[in-house]
Amino acid sequence: MKTIETKLAPKFTCRGVSVHYGEFRALHDIDIDIADRSVTALIGPSGCGKSTLLRVFNRMNETIPDARTRGTVLMDGTDIYAPSIDPVLLRTRVGMVFQKPAPFPRSVYDNVAYGPRLHGLAQARGELKRLVEKSLRRAGLWEEVKDRLSLPAPSLSIGQQQRLVLARALAIDPDVILMDEPASSLDPIATARLEALIEELKKRYCIIIVTHSMAQAARISDKTAFLHKGALIEYDQTDRIFTNPSDTRTQDYITGRFG
C-alpha cells in the first residue's frame, strides 16, 4: 500500500536510537521514518518514552544533565547529531510545544514575540505586531487575548497558556513542530480548533504529536507509532493501527485493556 508520503523522502530517519537517563534506558533501539507534510502520532502508556522520543528530534534531551542519546537521526538526510550541527540553530527549525505549558514571566505579547525578536525575524515597523497577531490567531487564542496583550502570560488559564506556547512556537515558523499533548487542558471547542490548525499546518510542516487520546490520534494523524516500555512496538498507517493492529499489545492498548 503505497501512499503519497512514503514516496517522498522522509523528514526524519532514526536508526538504532537509544536514550539513557543515567543507568535507566528510556528508549531502546528505535528505527522510525517520519514523513514530511504529514502528522505522525506517538501513542503509548504513560512513561513509555513518548516525550523522550519527541525530544530526540530537537536535541532537547541534551539539556538534561545525565541523558545520553545514541544512534543516528537524519533530518532531510543530514545527521543532526553530527558535531558540525549547532543544536541552537536546529531548534529554530524544529519547534516544540511542551507537555506542561511554561509561559515566560512576561506579557502575552512578549511571549509570542520572544522567538522573532531573538532571531530578528521582524525588522520592518509593525511587522512584529502582525506576526504576533497571526501566530495568536493560528493558535486560536487571538480573540481571547487581543484586548489584553500586555497581561502577564502566567495569569492566563492553563488551556490558554497551552495555546500561547503553541503560538510562541509558530511565531518562528519552523519546518517541524513537535507537540507533546498539546490538547491535554483544552476544552472540546479549542481542541477542535487545534485539530483544524494541525490539519492546515501539515500542508507545509512536518508534525509529530504525542497524544493520550486515541480518538484524536485516529482523527488527525496519518501514521501512528505505538511505544511500550521504551520500544517501538508498531508503526503504521493510522487506520491500520486502529482497525487491524498486528501486535496484541497495540490491540490491548487502543482498546483500553492496559496502559
Binding site: N58, M60, T63, V88, L89, R91, T92, G95, M96, F98, K100, A102, P103, F104, P105, Y114, G115, L118, H119, V165, R168, A169, I172
Partner: peptide, 22 residues
Amino acid sequence: PQSLRDGSTALGATKSETLTRV
C-alpha cells in the same frame, strides 16, 4: 523552573540568551 529555560531553549535561544531574557 527548568521548564522556563527549556521553553526558551526550544525556541532556539542560546544559554546566555535564555539567562538574560528569561
